[in-house]
Design a protein around this nucleic acid. Structure first.
Lengths: 144, 144
DNA sequence: TGCAAATACTTTGCATGCAAATTAATATAG
DNA sequence: CTATATTAATTTGCATGCAAAGTATTTGCA
């Protein structure tokens, strides 16, 4: 009997779909306490790592769609987490800068990776690293 | 130096986010030729495996949100891919049944897994199986 | 038997993800 | 120098993903 490639159980894409939805769902509750969504959290992490970057750089680092990024940054600006600064040199681009509120939110966020990590009872840290490496291969192969 | 858990590069969640978006994006072009979206493709695969199932069963198998499922099935009904059949025994539930058009669409879809598979140049089939197993662990751990 | 709890779906509101079109500004080739 | 290509962002339209509320039905238990 041939290996049925159209079976849902054999599909990497469906596993990724389920796993990605599962993990974003898992972040929802802790992120609700910070009053941000998952993509907004990704933006915050990028800015906590390096502040005052251009929107294009933020799009590159987070892999969030540019069109969505505009909307996300607008909502985050409304929440006073960051501000958009115009560049006099190149009037096309803008810089994103954390407000004090945005910077201090990191203190509340540091516990989140641990909270999520506690849910992984059957996946150890070595397997997690292996998983990350394999996912990197997926992204690389599909980006060409 | 402590391992910075808030760094984007160290986050499994962000890898899953990128990989999942990448792969759904990769399916977009071949699925455009079938005039269906990725979640609609997932529904089709479930029905090609087993037809005439309840909506609840379809939600369980595909892991698509119930609320979204209603909308998705409505769009697919409009495209004459399937029909919704009422149950006289239990008037709460409904069955989903492929139309001849929906059944025959499988012939056009069989090439898709191969097309996608060709994009994976650095990830071999053994690693793919390993990846699937690790993703299963993620889903299991997070579903409790 | 009667009524509260559970089920199966649907509806609504909000936040993306993504393609495509648009606008503004800068870079580059001729 | 100037027309054209490219780059940075925004806008728009469509399709989810998800929580929460709502509607029928059916179960199950006192």
């Amino acid at each position: 009997m041939p290996f049925d490639q159209l079976k849902l159980k054999n599909q990497l894409c469906h596993r990724l779909y389920m796993a990605s939805n599962s993990i974003v769902r898992a972040y929802r509750e802790p992120l609700n306490e910070l009053d941000i969504t998952y993509p907004q959290y990704v933006v915050m992490m990028a800015l906590w790592e390096e502040d005052e970057v251009t929107i294009a750089e933020l799009v590159r680092k987070t892999a969030i769609d540019g069109g969505a990024m505009t909307q996300i940054l607008k909502k985050m600006t409304d929440k006073w987490l960051l501000e958009i600064i115009k560049d006099d040199q190149d009037k096309r681009q803008r810089f994103v800068k954390l407000t004090p509120k945005g910077q201090s939110l990191k203190l509340k966020a540091v516990d989140i990776p641990t909270k999520i990590g506690c849910k992984f009872t059957s996946l150890d840290s070595e397997q997690t690293q292996q998983l990350i490496q394999l996912l990197d291969l997926v992204v690389i192969d599909l980006s060409e």
